[in-house]
C-alpha cells in the first residue's frame, strides 16, 4: 500500500539526484572540492571511497541535514534543507547503525510514518503493513513487540530497512548498509537491497566501501577521493576500467594514487 504524500513532479529525463560543483568545508578542513554527479530515476547508485573521503557529508547534503558552501544540490528538482528533507521527496533511509528508536518497539519503529503525517492509516492497518514489510526483509512478525535492544545487529539492520520501505518511498538511501555485519548477514542485506531497489522503479543511493555490496546491487558507481569524484561509470565497468584509482580501490591495494 502506498501512503499518499504530495510529491513534486519530475520530468522523465531529469535526474532524481543532481550535484553540481558541490563544495563543503569544516574549519580548517575542506572536505568536498567540487563534486558533480547525477542519479537517474530507477538507478541503483553507489558512491564508494575510503573512510574520511566525504561520502557521509555528500549524503547529508543531499538529505539537507547540513548546509553546503557552494554548488548546487537538487533532489527531484528541489533544494534540500532542514525544513524540506531531500527536497520534499518521498524517501526512506537505512542508517549505518540502524538508528531504530530505542524507546519504541519494532512495530512502532516500522509503522512510525504510517501512523503519523498526512497519509496516516489506522493502527490495525499499520500493523498489517508492518508485518508485511518485516516479512519482506526476512523477519517474522512475532518480533514486532520486541524493543531494538532485544534484537541482534543484523536484525536491527533489517528492521531499519523495513522502516525505510514502510511507505514505499521513491528514493532509498543506504549509509554503509553492511558495516558491522558478518559476511553471511552482509550478503543477505545486499540481496535484500538488490531486490527492493529493483522493485517498482525505486531509486537507490548507497554510500559504502564494501565492494561486495557494489557488485550485488549497484548499476552505476562513483569513486570519491580527497573530496572529488575520480571515477564515474557503470558497475559493469568496475573490472574493465583502467582508472588507476579505481583499480587500487577495487583490488584493495595499499599502493597507488589513493593515499
Amino acid at each position: 500500500m502506498k501512503v499518499s504524500v504530495a510529491t513534486p513532479p519530475v520530468a522523465p529525463d531529469e535526474p532524481v539526484i543532481e550535484l553540481r560543483e558541490l563544495t563543503k568545508s569544516f574549519p580548517g578542513n575542506p572536505v568536498l572540492r567540487g563534486v558533480s554527479l547525477e542519479v537517474a530515476k530507477g538507478e541503483s547508485f553507489a558512491l564508494i571511497g575510503g573512510s574520511g573521503t566525504g561520502k557521509s557529508v555528500i549524503l547529508k547534503c543531499i538529505l539537507g541535514l547540513i548546509p553546503w558552501d557552494g554548488g548546487i544540490v537538487r533532489v527531484n528538482g528541489n533544494k534540500p534543507s532542514l525544513s524540506s528533507i531531500a527536497g520534499g521527496a518521498r524517501i526512506g533511509m537505512l542508517f549505518q547503525g540502524g538508528a531504530l528508536f530505542d524507546s519504541m518497539t519494532v512495530f512502532q519503529n516500522v509503522a512510525f510514518q504510517l501512523v503519523r503525517g498526512p497519509g496516516r492509516v489506522s493502527a490495525a492497518e499499520a500493523r498489517e503493513i508492518a508485518a508485511r514489510k518485516l516479512e519482506r526483509v526476512g523477519l517474522e512478525a512475532k518480533i514486532m513487540d520486541l524493543y531494538p535492544s532485544e534484537l541482534s545487529g543484523g536484525m536491527q539492520k533489517r528492521a531499519g530497512l523495513a522502516r525505510a520501505i514502510a511507505t514505499d518511498p521513491d528514493i532509498l538511501f543506504f549509509d554503509e548498509p553492511t558495516t558491522g555485519l558478518d559476511p553471511i548477514r552482509a550478503a543477505g542485506i545486499n540481496r535484500l537491497i538488490s531486490g527492493i531497489v529493483g522493485e517498482s522503479g525505486t531509486t537507490g543511493f548507497t554510500i559504502t566501501h564494501d565492494m561486495s555490496s557494489v557488485r550485488t546491487f549497484a548499476s552505476k558507481v562513483a569513486l570519491l577521493h580527497s573530496g572529488q569524484i575520480v571515477w564515474n561509470g557503470a558497475a559493469s565497468e568496475l573490472d574493465t576500467s583502467d582508472n588507476s584509482s579505481l583499480r587500487q580501490f577495487v583490488e584493495g591495494s595499499a599502493r597507488g594514487p589513493l593515499t
Binding site: L63, I85, A99
Partner: peptide, 20 residues
Amino acid sequence: AEIATMKVTDQIDALRTLST
C-alpha cells in the same frame, strides 16, 4: 542523556528523514 544518545546514534537524523 536520552536526546544526546539519540543524536550520536543518528536517531535525530532518522526522525528528520521520517518527516518528523
